[in-house]
Nucleic acid binder design. Structure first.
Lengths: 339, 339
DNA sequence: TCAAAAATTGAAATCGCTTTGAATGCACTT
DNA sequence: AAGTGCATTCAAAGCGATTTCAATTTTTGA
């Protein structure tokens, strides 16, 4: 069922039918009603390719995911939030997955050059993100989930990682902890650097010296976290508290604590960052986990909104959002042991 | 840079340039070389929409994800496998996320009617899957990840869930367990039904009666698993072993066991199904987790391959693959306690 | 009642590509 | 030298929508 068929069926021109369906004002209401009804009845849907060619809009946004570190549980939650909002505007989400960094830039080039997408989403940027620079050069609009330092302004949405870690660290200091380990994300990623900043700020505000042995940078998997926590627990004096970068990390740390024969919440404390996964709930852990919490799904939804604003012509410089992070205290964070 | 521009730049017709780039034989090798070089040099990439309109192929495949239960860690792994292979063929993956079941069928209709995708992937089917029936009716090619009972043949890839559970259950029976709990997926999903079949078969082969109180059906989250396992552990006589449907489920069960003051691997055993998440490793749990293992990422890769075969014209009836599942025994499964 | 203005409809161009059918040039026979 | 066949190339017609500009009908005002 093409536009032409529908037009013939109705005894109208394609022009009028097209206008009627797209809500143009210069069409009689009676005609519009007749057209809409027939379209619904016959299940007419404009051919996406033709529509895109005619309008010059791709009707899709792109997302390039690096297999290894980006396609984790974080991304599915984010995607879920994003997708819901985009669907209402009939905008597709095109996902390209790549293995290496080389492939990654090529993928952006490919999507841009073939005009497959109207805009892109950039995730987990580094401090000076190459991908962002590339997209600016290619003049592809994009919204950044996170922040980066590039020459021109970019649209972004980020959570207050610095503030979150500063509060979490301060809280542990208040509880008497002095040796606080930080299991952070990969060095170079903005969010990890920001978290480090918050951690450092809190320490130095109390005059607690920073010990590099208590800081680890890696991807957020239970395995790496386990190993890092394990070796940290062998230090003397050992850390009395952990700041875990994600819930996966927290699981690994938890295991290390248990294996060392200690009790979480009494012998050792932990505050983890929680992106709110529906299948891994801080409230339902044992002991319940103290967290810095920010829903990554909500961020996805909001990113969609910002992207639509951007496509609607809102100036890049006006699209900035910094979300506060909640500190939720539960059982895993207790007073420092007295020994 | 359009085809037209490139053609003018070279002093050739669009026809020749198009043919040169698409590898048609009726073009002089010297010309082809000249064209290829100029195209690479000037960074020419055909406009995706135009190409699609002209060829009638969408150059994309679709994936509809139900927010709640389908967009978990399983899906990201799967997607990662799928995407890698598709990218090599310059085929996009269009992801549509929906919240409700109603929306879901509508999403399939939408993608099909607007001819946005050439084929689709169907995930986690039910025994008699509506979506599969819809797609057949709409004449959209698709490959099923799993199996379903519908009238006409469909292309599918599935793992041997029945065999996996039969072996896992038998193994536990061999170890002397008689009260074996099954934490299965949602009722109605084929994979869950198949697992139940395997479980039942193993029990009845030994003449061990089935106790409905020892079977739970739900989504694979740590929370639900925790609650189910907890209440099962309150039964008398209580279960001495658990079969967990996923690693998330295993985490919940593990917590319940610990909270009940018992030891995994000695007081209670567990075998979990492992889809091989890079961030949650059975080998690195404590105690290490016995699993039925099958890489969902590899399944994604293979699904891409099957999809390409399908698009290449291979008959649906010839596209069937049933993968065996490994049983990997580690520390979490031990002899039944003697009391 | 009739011209002018407003409302409504339509024919044809356009988007950037592929592909059909025709045309051109060239080497080789005869 | 003319005819044959082959290798190359090109002009133009789609693909299915939107959109410009023109045509037609209806309404309005004097």
């Amino acid at each position: 069922m093409r536009l032409k068929d529908l037009a013939e069926h109705l005894g109208l021109s394609q022009t009028t039918v097209s206008r009627a369906l797209n809500g143009y004002p210069e069409v009689k209401e009676a005609t519009r009603a007749r057209v809409s009804e027939a379209a619904a009845q016959l299940g007419y849907r404009p051919n996406a390719s033709a529509l895109r060619l005619a309008t010059g809009r791709a009707g899709a946004i792109g997302l390039v995911l690096r297999g290894a570190d980006e396609l984790g549980p974080h991304m599915s939650e984010f995607l879920s939030g994003l997708g819901g909002r985009m669907a209402t505007q009939d905008i597709d989400i095109v996902v390209a997955t790549v293995a290496s960094h080389q492939e990654e830039l090529a993928a952006y080039r490919r999507l841009a050059a073939s005009q497959r997408v109207d805009a892109m989403i950039l995730h987990s940027p580094t401090l000076k993100d190459e991908r962002a620079e590339l997209l600016m050069e290619l003049k592809v609009p994009f919204v950044l989930h996170g922040r980066t330092n590039v020459a021109k302004p970019v649209a972004w949405l980020d959570i207050d990682n610095t503030g979150a870690l500063e509060r979490a660290t301060s809280h542990l200091l208040d509880l008497g902890h002095r040796r606080i380990a930080l299991l952070n994300g990969v060095k170079g990623r903005t969010f990890a650097e920001h978290r480090e900043l918050g951690y450092m700020a809190a320490l130095s505000a109390r005059g607690v010296p920073f010990d590099p042995a208590l800081m680890g940078n890696s991807v957020f998997t239970d395995e790496v976290a386990f190993r890092m926590a394990q070796s940290m627990l062998e230090l003397r004096p050992r850390p009395t508290a952990f700041l875990a970068g994600s819930m996966m990390t927290a699981l690994g740390v938890f295991r290390a604590i248990r294996q060392a024969g200690m009790q979480l919440g009494t012998d050792v404390s932990m505050i983890a960052h929680d992106d709110v996964f529906p299948y891994l709930n801080a409230d339902n852990m044992y002991p319940t986990m103290s967290t810095t919490r920010s829903s990554i799904r909500q961020a996805g939804e909001r990113m969609a909104e910002l992207l639509l604003q951007l496509l609607g012509g809102k100036p890049v410089a006006d699209i900035h959002e910094l979300w506060p992070v909640e500190l939720v205290l539960r059982e895993s964070s207790g007073p420092a042991p007295l020994f």
